[in-house]
């Protein structure tokens, strides 16, 4: 699933490690999310949305 994580992270000047710390996941997880190859669970998607203060559908785009 496509997402804007990389852009949102760059806007805040956070590294992958910074974002990983804030979400309490591993840096590898952030990497897998950003490539769009791993879709987060609903709880993690909500944590991401809360962190960036945006609705989930503004961060993740479903291509259908």
């Amino acid at each position: 699933m496509k997402n804007r994580l990389k852009v949102l992270r760059a806007e805040r000047d956070w590294s992958q490690a910074d974002l990983a710390d804030k979400l309490q996941v591993s840096r590898q997880t952030i990497n897998a999310l950003e490539t769009g190859k791993y879709d987060p669970s609903l709880p993690l998607a909500f944590r991401i949305a809360r962190l960036f203060e945006q609705p989930i559908e503004a961060i993740f785009q479903d291509e259908a």
Binding site: Q24, V25, S26, Q28, T29, A32, L33, Y38, P40, S41, L44
Partner: peptide, 8 residues
């Protein structure tokens, strides 16, 4: 394991 990606 709290990290869901690691778990997967």
């Amino acid at each position: 394991e709290p990290d869901e990606f690691e778990r997967a």
